[in-house]
Every structure is written in structure tokens, then in C-alpha cells.
């Protein structure tokens, strides 16, 4: 017979959930002022954002009241004839932004991964500064680069894509003759694609910064766990870093999309504007809401100005939705950082 050994625990007293001790004592007068002032500064930032929306709406009521819903379904922009709408402009804006994000996304994600996971420590801080520098290069400089240098290079690429993938409707070009090597290159200039390539340069650092911040918050415990189980570095990235950073990847990409939608000067310098909707991204001619405003505000009548304000309002609302979704994703991914380290 075996004696059964058992540990008998004394009955535990039920203790309530631990509660944090309230920290705030009585506030002195100086601290009340301090709290009030800092709170007001936060409110001021909210107020500025609200004021942007309010005044844009105020100035655009005149034009929007005249055309109503046809503002969304009209392609031409002739406010002085009473006929204007953002259908074409907005389509082109979205196309440019999508091209830009499609090019920038792989590069920014790979650069973020390189900085966090591969770069030696000394190179790392330099790379971080250089990506910040890329974000701070003025858009007019990118515009100069795009219009005077990149345009010539990208035309060759456009021609190549058109020759081999022209059967996909997206890449077909009206008036292009791929068989003829001496054909005119002007059918490829000032296109949505060229503008997208240049905007990609501006979008890439913004996406990269957000992704890098999220990737660098991967708990070291999980990372080392993957290595301890025999993962290679790419294996670790695939099973730990990327799933952990998913919120940051989505959020960063969308934040870049928001920036791409609103880019003005570089796009203005590259495209030649057109108002007939075309999904052929390689084709000459494109448009964007912000370039339209920059192009027309100087010679606009009072009513034309109001019409431009309504275009600005629509751009503001779209970027607002995109950016809010983005920052919601980023904020959520950060709060998910509390795992065992």
C-alpha cells in the first residue's frame, strides 16, 4: 500500500482585485493653472483641425449649392459656365496615389526591415537619419528631379511595359506603336505613371518611419524564442516581426496613401492636365485635385474660387478618412505591444 502524500493549503482569504492607490492629492493653484494650460493646448490642436474643415465648408457652400450632387458626377471643370465636378480629377488623383503606393510599399517595407533586422548597429542610426532626410527633402526638389531627370528614364520603362504588357488594359496606350522603334515618345510623357514614380519617393520615407517604429517594438523574447527554435533570420522575420507589425504596416501604408493624395507641387510640375477619365496609367496627361487648385486659383473668379474650395474640401475629407483609419491602425498596433518579453 502506498501512502498518499498531499499538500493541504489553508483556505485562502478572498482579497479583492488590487487597485492602484489614487495618486493625485490636492492640487495647488499653480498646478491647476498648469493642467488647464496644457489641456487648452490639446484643445487648440483639435480646434485648428475643426476650423480647417469648417472654413473650407463655409467657402464652398456657394459653389456646392449651385450644382449639388452633380459635383461628384461631372468631369469637366468650367465653373464660370456653371459646369464643374471632381469625377475626373479625383479619379486621376486616386490613380496617381495608387501607383505611388504600389511602388513605394515594397521598398519602404524592405528598407524598414533592413534597418531593424539586418543593418549593423553603426549603420543603423545613419540610415534612420537618411530616411528622415528623404522625408524632409522639399517636394519642389523632388518635382525638379522628376520633371528634368526621371521623366527621361521612366519613358523607357513605360515603353517597355507597354510593349510587353500592353494587352492588360491598365498598361495600354492610345496612339502608341510598340513595333516601331522610332515612334514618338511624347505619348508616354507627363503621365499618371511618371507622376506616381515621383510621388513614391515622397511616400516611401513616411511609410518607412512608421513601419520601422513598429518593427523595433517587437518583444526581444519572441524574437530570441524563434532563434532558439532554429529559425533563420528570414524565418524569424516571417513568423515574428511581420505578424507583430501588421498594424504598423497597414497604418503606415495608408498614411503614405494620404500623403500621396495631397501632393501638389511635384505632381503639378510633371503632369499635363486632362479632364477625360482614362485608366491607362502610361498614357500622357493626368490630373490631381491639388494641382487643379494650384493651377486655377490665380485667375479664378469669386465663384470659381468657391468651386476650388469645394474641390479642396473633398480632398480634405478623403485624406481625413484615410489618415484617421491609418492612425487608428498604428495606435492599435502599439497597444498590442504588451506581450511577455
Amino acid at each position: 500500500m502506498t501512502a498518499e502524500l498531499r499538500t493541504v493549503l489553508p483556505p485562502q482569504e478572498r482579497v479583492g482585485e488590487p487597485e492602484p492607490r489614487p495618486f493625485a492629492g490636492r492640487q495647488g493653484r499653480s498646478d491647476k493653472v498648469f493642467t488647464r494650460v496644457t489641456f487648452l493646448s490639446g484643445v487648440a490642436v483639435l480646434a485648428i483641425m475643426g476650423a480647417v474643415g469648417f472654413f473650407l465648408t463655409l467657402e464652398s457652400t456657394d459653389a456646392l449649392g449651385r450644382v449639388g450632387f452633380s459635383f461628384l458626377t461631372t468631369s469637366v471643370w468650367e465653373p464660370d459656365r456653371g459646369e464643374f465636378g471632381i469625377k475626373a480629377v479625383l479619379t486621376f488623383t486616386v490613380l496617381i496615389a495608387l501607383v505611388a503606393v504600389a511602388i513605394a510599399f515594397p521598398i519602404s517595407m524592405a528598407t524598414a526591415l533592413f534597418i531593424v533586422e539586418i543593418a549593423p548597429r553603426r549603420v543603423k542610426s545613419w540610415l534612420v537619419s537618411l530616411v528622415d532626410l528623404m522625408a524632409a527633402v522639399p517636394s519642389v526638389v523632388y518635382g525638379l528631379w522628376g520633371a528634368f531627370l526621371m521623366q527621361g528614364q521612366v519613358i523607357g520603362l513605360s515603353r517597355w511595359i507597354n510593349t510587353w504588357f500592353g494587352w492588360i488594359p491598365l498598361f495600354s496606350v492610345d496612339g502608341a506603336d510598340p513595333g516601331n522603334p522610332l515612334s514618338n515618345a511624347t505619348v508616354y510623357t507627363a503621365s499618371t505613371f511618371v507622376a506616381g514614380v515621383v510621388v513614391a519617393m515622397m511616400v516611401m520615407p513616411i511609410q518607412c518611419v512608421v513601419m520601422r517604429e513598429v518593427f523595433s517594438q517587437v518583444p526581444p523574447g519572441e524574437r530570441e524564442g524563434a532563434f532558439a527554435l532554429g529559425a533563420t533570420r528570414w524565418g524569424m522575420i516571417r513568423v515574428v516581426t511581420l505578424p507583430f507589425g501588421r498594424g504598423g504596416i497597414i497604418g503606415g501604408t495608408m498614411l503614405g496613401l494620404g500623403r500621396a493624395l495631397g501632393e501638389t507641387i511635384a505632381v503639378y510640375m510633371i503632369i499635363s492636365s486632362r479632364f477625360d477619365i482614362s485608366f491607362h496609367v502610361l498614357e500622357s496627361g493626368s490630373n490631381s485635385v491639388s494641382a487643379l487648385i494650384a493651377l486655377r486659383y490665380a485667375e479664378a473668379s469669386d465663384f470659381g474660387l468657391s468651386a476650388l474650395f469645394s474641390a479642396g474640401l473633398s480632398l480634405f475629407l478623403i485624406t481625413l478618412v484615410v489618415n484617421f483609419t491609418a492612425s487608428w491602425f498604428v495606435a492599435r498596433s502599439r497597444s498590442g505591444a504588451d506581450s511577455e518579453a
Partner: peptide, 28 residues
């Protein structure tokens, strides 16, 4: 520093504002 509930709202707005189109700021 603040424990106020508005902190999260302000932080979200600020992040969204970093990508405010510059032409919209000019128009405003």
C-alpha cells in the same frame, strides 16, 4: 503628462494631421 481622456483623441488627430495636404492648409 496628462491623465485626461482627451489624450488619445488628440494623439490620433495629430497623427492624422501629419499627412494633411499642404494645399489644404494654404486654402484654409
Amino acid at each position: 503628462e496628462s491623465k485626461s481622456r482627451a489624450v488619445n483623441a488628440v494623439r490620433t488627430i495629430v497623427t492624422a494631421m501629419t499627412a494633411l495636404p499642404s494645399i489644404v492648409a494654404g486654402l484654409f
